[in-house]
Amino acid sequence: MTRDAQETTLVERDHLIGIVEEFRKKGYRLVQMSCTKAGELYEINYSFDLDYQFRNIRIVIDGLSEIPSISGIYWGAFVYENEMYDLFGIRVVGMNIDFGGNLFRTAKKNPFANPTFRGEETCPKR
């Protein structure tokens, strides 16, 4: 297998909507959105594809700031945005369908922001 280099373009949060609109105009489809915690910051990746050409853009924010929703451009983005809110606590403004933190009902709030694990303690019997 030859190594295929994937490029990720870092963009400003304020330019995000314009860039995503550009992708949509060119006919790209939204592949996925994901969030990664890097230290205290959060990297948010937006991936697009046109004829198997994979493009990836990234914004980096701190945990307190909000990001604009792209669900006005790609209607289906709401699942990723709600997921990001539920798992990481990233606030997304202007989602077309806002589950208000109820898409994933989890044991603790924003579990992926500070992952914890169940220890070796045995489960409470009955």
């Binding site: 996925q32 209607w75 289906g76 709401f78 990723y80």
Partner: peptide, 28 residues
């Protein structure tokens, strides 16, 4: 389409694995 994203920092443990499964994208 299934997407597996991995990010490593040179240690034995990955920093992040993200699995985007086809059913999630077929939901809208």
């Amino acid at each position: 389409e299934l997407v597996h994203y991995v990010k490593g920092d040179g240690s034995k443990h990955l920093v992040r694995s993200r699995i985007r499964t086809p059913t999630l994208t077929n939901l809208p």
